[in-house]
């Protein structure tokens, strides 16, 4: 396959970036998208040019490191996967592919396609945990039965990989899906209910401080989420927050 790539290049956080065009051949349809970028980078290095910086790590769709807005969609045109799981067979010979970093005020660009997503960490730090110590001297795990349905729902909320696709896809760059997934996980479990009010208030407060946009309920986040995190979580957070605010 031969492809034309239009890639955002930006030297560092302060520099002004621009789109650059690269041509690449010898792309196999069995390659993953990131392997295609590896090939591009190796050729750039051999030509004495600077390779394109992009975030990636586990390359199996679970660490949430890879990002990229590919042809206008986070993680590209396929559904239910991350960029590292996107394969070139989804593209056609001769295609032009536009590759940009995730864009949000709360995700400043560090270099090329790499963005800083620590705002997500700070939201978690504000209250995304259950305040138990780590002594292990807690009660026996089975002394607290949890309805399977609740445990499963909490699990599905907890499968969020924190990649930021929800923010990237949202026309408002809102972090509601991310924040609500964590709030939901904890709110659904009896262990987490105890400090549910403080948690939701603190996490939303931090989310606002980070400069994310508001939720317009367009549903783009749910569709682009590689893990299919449900909008139900956003509603649950709305509910939890309302409860906590009127208390």
């Amino acid at each position: 396959m031969k492809l034309t790539l239009k890639i955002w290049r930006q030297k560092n956080a302060k520099a002004k970036g621009s789109m650059q065009t690269y041509n690449i051949s010898d792309v196999s349809p069995d390659m993953s998208f990131l392997e295609m970028l590896d090939v591009l980078n190796d050729s750039l290095i051999e030509k004495g040019e600077e390779p394109v910086e992009f975030d990636h790590d586990c390359r199996e769709g679970i660490c949430g490191t890879c990002s990229l807005q590919i042809n206008g969609e986070p993680h590209g045109p396929d559904r239910g996967i991350t960029t590292c799981q996107l394969h070139m067979r989804k593209f056609k010979d001769g295609d032009t592919i536009v590759i940009e970093p995730f864009r949000a005020a709360a995700f400043p660009v560090i270099k090329d396609l790499v963005v800083d997503r620590n705002s997500f960490d700070r939201i978690q730090q504000a209250g995304g945990y259950i305040s138990v110590n780590t002594s292990g001297n807690t009660q026996d795990a089975n002394s607290l039965p949890i309805p399977k349905e609740d445990a499963d729902m909490a699990f599905y909320a907890a499968t969020c990989i924190g990649c930021g696709a929800c923010v990237a896809a949202c026309k408002n760059a809102s972090a509601m899906l991310f924040t609500s997934a964590k709030v939901s996980q904890m709110a659904l479990l009896p262990q987490g209910k105890i400090e549910a009010s403080e948690r939701v208030l603190a996490m939303v407060d931090q989310m606002d401080k980070e400069g994310f946009g508001n939720c317009t309920n367009t549903g783009a986040c749910e569709i682009e989420c590689p893990k299919g995190i449900s909008l139900e979580n956003i509603a649950r957070m709305n509910r939890e927050y309302l409860k906590a605010s009127v208390k």
């Binding site: 807005q69 042809n71 206008g72 408002n172 508001n214």
Partner: peptide, 22 residues
């Protein structure tokens, strides 16, 4: 919401995942 994304995408295809009215 505008402030939340000061730098716009060159290529943004919200039509693939959202309804126009929303």
């Amino acid at each position: 919401n505008r402030k939340a994304r000061p730098q716009k995408y060159v290529n943004f295809k919200p039509s693939t995942n959202t309804r126009w009215a929303s």
